Amino acid sequence: MDVFMKGLSKAKEGVVAAAEKTKQGVAEAAGKTKEGVLYVGSKTKEGVVHGVATVAEKTKEQVTNVGGAVVTGVTAVAQKTVEGAGSIAAATGFVKKDQLGKNEEGAPQEGILEDMPVDPDNEAYEMPSEEGYQDYEPEA
């Protein structure tokens, strides 16, 4: 019985440690998101679009440190934060509304985080759909 109880105690310690790591990862992701939003706020009209992409990228980098179902929630929060940063930029006159959601080359930025393969159960990952990809044929 002692062996059984000791095993359960060790398992509990492992769960607590994993929860603490997840909590730490979420806190880091939130900190990076805040950094990115402050970065966007300090940019001029020309830099705002690039700044919004930076927020998304920093958040995406930190999301990889967070495991399990938390990833889905962090990704949703990050996307809403990026959308909010863009709205703030438009409201303050840093950028025109028609410039939001495009990178410096004018290509749409939507789907940055949505296409990231995420499995809350950590069982399997699927690649994003290939609808947006084109076949590449090298020139002879």
Rank of each mutant, 00 (worst) to 15 (best):
M1Y: 00
M1C: 00
D2T: 15
D2Q: 09
D2H: 10
V3M: 13
V3L: 08
F4I: 10
F4Q: 00
F4M: 02
M5R: 04
M5L: 00
K6C: 15
K6W: 09
K6A: 14
K6I: 01
G7W: 14
G7D: 00
G7R: 03
G7F: 14
L8F: 02
L8V: 09
L8C: 03
S9C: 04
S9I: 14
S9Y: 04
S9Q: 03
K10L: 14
K10I: 13
K10Y: 02
K10N: 12
A11C: 06
K12H: 09
E13M: 10
E13K: 01
E13P: 00
E13N: 15
E13G: 11
G14N: 07
V16E: 10
A17M: 14
A17F: 10
A17P: 00
A17E: 09
A19G: 04
A19N: 00
A19R: 02
E20S: 02
E20Y: 11
E20Q: 03
E20N: 03
K21R: 11
K21M: 11
K21Y: 12
T22H: 06
T22C: 04
Q24V: 15
G25E: 09
G25S: 11
V26P: 00
E28V: 07
A29H: 04
A30D: 00
K32L: 13
K32F: 13
K32M: 10
T33V: 06
K34H: 13
E35C: 12
E35V: 07
E35L: 13
G36Y: 09
G36L: 04
G36W: 03
V37G: 01
V37Q: 00
Y39Q: 07
V40R: 02
V40M: 02
V40N: 00
G41R: 09
G41K: 03
G41C: 05
S42M: 10
S42A: 10
S42E: 04
T44W: 15
T44M: 08
G47C: 05
V48L: 12
V48H: 01
V49E: 06
V49G: 04
V49T: 15
H50W: 11
H50V: 01
H50G: 13
H50R: 05
G51P: 02
G51A: 15
G51D: 02
V52G: 01
V55N: 00
E57G: 03
E57F: 09
E57P: 02
K58V: 10
K58E: 08
T59H: 02
K60T: 03
K60H: 14
K60I: 08
K60A: 15
Q62H: 05
Q62E: 04
Q62N: 10
V63H: 01
V63Q: 01
V66R: 07
V66W: 14
G67I: 03
G67P: 03
G67N: 04
G67Q: 13
G68F: 03
G68C: 04
A69T: 01
A69G: 12
V71N: 03
V71D: 10
V71W: 14
T72R: 08
G73K: 03
G73W: 02
G73P: 04
G73R: 07
V74F: 05
V74M: 05
V74R: 01
V74G: 06
V74D: 01
T75K: 08
A76E: 12
A76D: 05
V77Q: 10
V77N: 03
V77D: 02
A78L: 13
A78I: 10
A78N: 05
K80E: 06
K80C: 06
K80Q: 04
V82Q: 12
V82I: 03
E83C: 05
E83A: 03
E83P: 03
E83K: 15
E83L: 04
G84N: 14
A85T: 09
G86K: 03
G86Q: 14
S87D: 12
I88N: 05
A90M: 06
A91P: 07
A91S: 08
A91Q: 06
A91W: 09
A91I: 03
A91R: 04
A91M: 02
G93W: 13
G93D: 06
G93F: 02
G93A: 15
G93P: 04
G93H: 12
F94R: 01
V95G: 15
V95K: 13
V95T: 13
K96L: 11
K96H: 15
K96W: 12
K97N: 08
K97C: 11
K97A: 15
K97G: 07
D98R: 08
Q99F: 12
Q99D: 15
Q99M: 14
Q99A: 09
L100Y: 02
L100T: 04
G101P: 13
G101H: 04
K102Q: 01
N103A: 05
N103L: 09
N103V: 14
N103H: 08
E104M: 15
E104F: 14
G106L: 14
G106F: 12
G106Y: 14
A107K: 09
P108S: 10
P108G: 02
Q109K: 06
Q109G: 01
Q109L: 03
Q109S: 12
E110L: 14
E110V: 05
I112K: 05
I112D: 09
I112S: 02
L113P: 13
L113Q: 08
L113N: 01
L113R: 06
E114T: 15
D115C: 07
D115Q: 12
D115F: 11
D115I: 05
P117Q: 06
P117S: 05
P117N: 06
P117K: 14
V118G: 14
D119I: 04
D119Y: 08
D119K: 03
P120M: 10
P120T: 07
D121R: 03
D121H: 12
N122E: 10
N122A: 06
E123Y: 08
E123V: 13
A124E: 04
A124Y: 14
A124W: 08
Y125F: 11
Y125M: 02
E126T: 12
E126P: 11
M127T: 09
M127H: 05
M127Y: 07
P128T: 08
S129D: 13
E130Q: 09
E131N: 10
E131S: 12
G132H: 12
G132A: 15
G132R: 06
G132T: 11
G132P: 02
G132M: 10
G132W: 08
Y133F: 11
Y133Q: 14
D135H: 06
D135T: 12
D135L: 08
Y136P: 03
Y136V: 10
E137S: 09
E137D: 05
P138V: 14
P138L: 03
P138H: 05
P138Y: 07
P138F: 10
E139N: 13
E139G: 04
E139S: 14
A140W: 15
A140C: 07
A140T: 13
